[in-house]
Design a protein around this nucleic acid. Structure first.
Lengths: 104, 104
DNA sequence: CCAGTATATCACAAGAACCATATATCACGC
DNA sequence: GCGTGATATATGGTTCTTGTGATATACTGG
């Protein structure tokens, strides 16, 4: 019975990481991340809205959520705001989904 | 401007996968999954409760959620119910967290 | 300053997630 | 059938999430 020497991930790490993953795990937000991943360059909000086929306000809110989690970062250029992925660990998630396409 | 030939993951796939990831992305559920991953053999509820340092009812609920998502499966042996990971894609998640320990 | 486009925020109602407490079921040995 | 340990479900208050419509702010060109 190998039950003594199991070392689990620190609960504090889990508590820190869970909301990040959880926040990424939303259809629209995954789509945004996928779009940015495929684009391979920063994209402005209008482009993202188009790619997502969703309302502007809603997309903007999702961008905010992703930015607050440190998943995205953005920079303003004139009247445009360009977003890109800041935490590349998220690419693991996207790539995993992409490579499986039938996880569940 | 490379914007035409971007092929995004099908929205239906994202809608299917998102809740699975979302449901895994919870501190206690991640801990359960981590524990089962490290154990490398099915574990009964009491063991899991101990490893998680959480209430029995609560853990049982989380197990149910994970099972409903197809992430876990279980088999009964006498009065014990043994759980194990059914969808090994989840290990990517765990391993990713484990290897980074400072995603965010 | 004004009009127009780009982006962000607010407010809200419906619904879902969280977690605890209490209670139920199930299997076993006697 | 009874008592007990193992596991599951019910219930409910609180908090978080979702997606929408309205509105605000930021920047540009004229």
């Amino acid at each position: 019975m190998p039950e003594t020497d199991i070392e689990l991930i620190d609960m504090r790490v889990l508590e820190q990481v869970a909301p990040i993953i959880r926040n990424a795990a939303h259809p629209l937000r995954l789509r945004i991340l996928d779009f940015l991943r495929q684009s391979d360059e920063p994209r402005n909000v209008t482009d993202i809205v188009e790619a997502c086929e969703a309302g502007q306000a809603f997309v903007s809110q999702q961008l905010r959520i992703l930015k607050d989690q440190g998943i995205l970062e953005c920079k303003r250029t004139g009247s445009f705001v360009y977003y890109q992925v800041a935490n590349r660990a998220i690419f693991h998630l996207i790539d995993c989904i992409r490579s499986q396409q039938r996880c569940g």
